[in-house]
Design a protein around this nucleic acid. Structure first.
Lengths: 213, 213
DNA sequence: GTCTATAGGATGATAGAC
DNA sequence: GTCTATCATCCTATAGAC
């Protein structure tokens, strides 16, 4: 605690842990947008406002960086679920509270999509292993801590995967234009979260956009 | 129809359409395994038993090849659904028939996963656009042709996305080892399809395995 | 802690022969 | 219809200065 905790100012020297976290957040956004292979350490560096070799230096390798992103995402996810459960304790509908907690993770841009990209990379020996372990960790949380039945857990996870897919496919782009898209989106997203959707629509081609050319 | 329809023999000259289909199937497997960016035209070529430049030559570009894979996958998907509906006509449970039809597409290795990879690439201007259109096409089929309610369609698609995720994450690897994995897998896959699962377990590190090194 | 320079290894695509 | 050879990028990672 040598230095007072303050805002992390890009372009400035800062302590290792602070910069690490900053890069981790940038990486989450970029990996979420382009996937593990599609994301470049350079894009992460630009998003974080540091040099590309420095990104590699901090984490050792692109793979290690992605693993760190997954780790952080899983922590936030389980943390949000446990918080929702604690806040609910005893009351009527744990599933609804968990669902809201899940959807609120959308505010951490790229988080759910980075997870999704990890999930779909099961054939990679190291990423796949971590993804499976993480997924099962969540499943156990649902069954054991949240008290879901196997059927409830299935339904909950299924809805989550569909939500992830809708975010990944950027279905919000067609929201105004297409009645089917609207109906589908409305059924996927809790009404409370519509402000997040409009936010998403604006981000259409954000800083971490598709492959430059 | 100049040449009698026969088996496509690798290493032999064949008609354009025939070879095209062969490469398309190989590409489906490779894209399913490694994703759009992670797959290389060279890996597709090796899987198909032709040269890398020839793969590019046939389709024009890697992107065009992936689009062709998506096209084919969507055709099979909607075809399977319509066939299931026709075979069911009037009987009790269209949803069950559709679910089986969906899961049976697993036999076309890489098909559902290539779709899934396309779905989470929404930020790509051309791939994302096709993915959205395809997804909405399926949604409309469910609502209009299959007569699903919005809630039913949601549930059906959600289960489908979870199934895709389980295949992508290769959860079958943990099937024997982990009780939670077993319970989850059993709830995701119709019991009739367990032979496909064991098949999948064998394919653990198949020909189109993870990045060579 | 952070940067610049750059090596070294793919990979998509083109040219051109057979 | 299909191949070999090869170019031009792009990208991760290392070296080394400040």
């Amino acid at each position: 605690m040598e230095q007072a905790e303050g805002q992390a100012v890009p372009g400035t020297r800062m302590r290792a842990g602070q910069r690490r976290e900053l890069v981790l957040e940038a990486a989450t956004r970029v990996f979420g947008e382009r996937g593990y292979v599609g994301a470049t350490t350079d894009a992460v560096a630009k998003e974080a406002g540091v040099s590309q070799p420095y990104v590699v230096r901090i984490f050792g390798s692109k793979e290690a960086l992605f693993l760190a992103v997954l780790e952080r995402a899983l922590e936030r996810l389980t943390g949000a679920f446990r918080a929702a459960l604690a806040a609910q304790a005893g009351r009527a509908d744990p599933a609804a509270a968990m669902g809201s907690a899940y959807a609120e993770l959308l505010a951490d841009r790229g988080l759910l999509l980075s997870l999704m990209h990890g999930f779909i990379l099961g054939s990679d020996p190291v990423i796949g292993a971590r993804a499976r372990a993480g997924f099962l960790e969540v499943y156990r949380l649902l069954r054991e801590e949240a008290g879901f039945s196997a059927e409830q857990a299935h339904g909950f996870l299924a809805s989550g995967m569909l939500l992830n897919t809708m975010v990944g496919i950027r279905m919000s782009v067609d929201y105004e234009r297409d009645a089917a898209a609207r109906e589908l989106m409305d059924s996927v997203f809790p009404t409370k979260l519509h402000f997040l959707l409009s936010l998403e629509r604006e981000q259409g081609a954000g800083a971490a956009g598709p492959v430059p050319s």
